[in-house]
Nucleic acid binder design. Structure first.
Length: 358
DNA sequence: AATACGTGGGG
DNA sequence: TCCCCAAGTAT
């Protein structure tokens, strides 16, 4: 790309941003901690979703020291509903590393930043450019889409990441890296959207190859995926003679790691829901239960599979619950359950229990 | 390099 | 209804 074009692209984008850039709360701050929190929350998550979480989080954990000193349960509770919970666990661990190894200061070296858990190349670039105005490129979903259209990229972005990183770096304005990166993301989020891009309002219209070839709605190229597997799960709401409910904390690794849940598991072929629940509870907790009435059936979709949750009331018969396949087990009341972080599908179960007890 | 990892909203 | 997607990272 000729240097004269690069200069025009920088200038037109920065002019556009000065007039139409979004007023977002983290842009009002130069605190690396606040900017870091926003960057992690924004991974694979829309601005609209993040806004309420961001404000609450800074109220609960106003500094990196406060976050480092917090209990993981409180951290996960503040993250409840945002998804990709490894982000919260990594944020917590990274805060402790910053306090212990960086004197409480967010590292300014990109290699040091990327050594922190949960911070990859794009997040590091986003933080260092936004907080310190360092000339470090980014390549998030917005930038991939904008650049793929700008050059009419004839490949799915995933196949040519090096080329896109190179382009992001070439275009980055060395004088205004903070505003340039933010402007690039705003362009993707508000003008160069996935569906019905507003090309007539775009500052890059003149240089956009996709627009000039009228293929903007076809780009970026996407790859089709096979249909998601579907799992049927039996879930137990086990109550004891005191009316308390049994919950367990999932292991740290993997899906929903560290969150609490109602115990249960996958229905085997030719197995009834009741038999599944009774078996799973014996295997996971080592106790005998009686499976009772159905509370609800709910559908939920994760990133890589779908589930049908068959939730039944159960009565504890005998045995002391043990954490055989989880990190912890606890009897709680419906009031106490508020303090525990649960996945979204389980929040629906709690709401149903609350409605049933009212 | 390909896959695991959440959730809510839009077409 | 169903698929796709949105400020990606870790392994």
């Amino acid at each position: 790309m000729p240097n004269s074009v690069v200069l025009q692209l920088r200038r037109s984008l920065l002019d556009w941003y000065a007039e139409f850039g979004r007023d977002l709360p983290w842009r009002r701050s130069r605190d690396p901690y606040a900017i870091w929190i926003s960057e992690i929350m924004l991974q694979q998550t829309q601005v609209k979703t993040v806004l309420p979480y961001y404000d609450r989080w800074l109220g609960t954990f106003p500094t990196v020291q406060a976050l480092a000193a917090a209990d993981q349960q409180a951290v996960l509770k503040a993250w409840q509903g945002l998804g990709y919970y490894a982000r919260a666990r990594n944020l917590h661990r990274a805060a402790q590393a910053i306090v212990q190894q960086h004197q409480g200061q967010f590292p300014r070296q990109i290699t040091a930043a990327m050594a922190l858990p949960g911070i990859g190349q794009t997040t590091a670039g986003g933080i260092l450019s936004a907080a310190f105005n360092q000339p470090v490129p980014i390549l998030d979903g917005n930038v991939k889409r904008v650049l793929a259209r700008l050059v009419a990229l004839p490949h799915p972005p995933r196949k040519v990441l090096n080329q896109l990183w190179q382009l992001s770096e070439t275009l980055l304005d060395p004088q205004y890296p903070r505003d340039f990166n933010q402007a690039l993301m705003d362009l993707g989020a508000t003008i160069c959207t996935r569906h019905n891009p507003a090309c007539l309002l775009c500052p890059w219209q003149q240089h956009c190859q996709a627009y000039n070839q009228n293929v903007q709605s076809e780009l970026p190229m996407s790859e089709s995926r096979p249909p998601l597997p579907h799992k049927f799960i039996g879930v137990a709401v086990i109550r004891n003679d005191q009316g308390e409910i049994l919950i367990d904390r999932r292991r740290q690794e993997g899906l929903l790691g560290g969150l609490w849940e109602f115990p249960g598991g996958k229905v085997e072929p030719n197995e009834t829901i009741a038999a599944c629940i009774k078996r799973e509870i014996q295997e996971e907790l080592g106790i005998e239960i009686e499976v009772g009435d159905r509370l609800m059936v709910l559908e939920h979709a994760y990133t890589h599979f779908k589930v049908t949750l068959n939730v039944h009331y159960c009565r504890h018969l005998s045995g002391e619950p043990q954490p055989l396949e989880c990190d912890e087990v606890r009897w709680v009341t419906l009031d106490e359950i508020e303090a525990y972080p649960f996945p979204a599908a389980n929040v629906q179960i709690i709401e149903a229990l609350r409605a049933a007890s009212a």
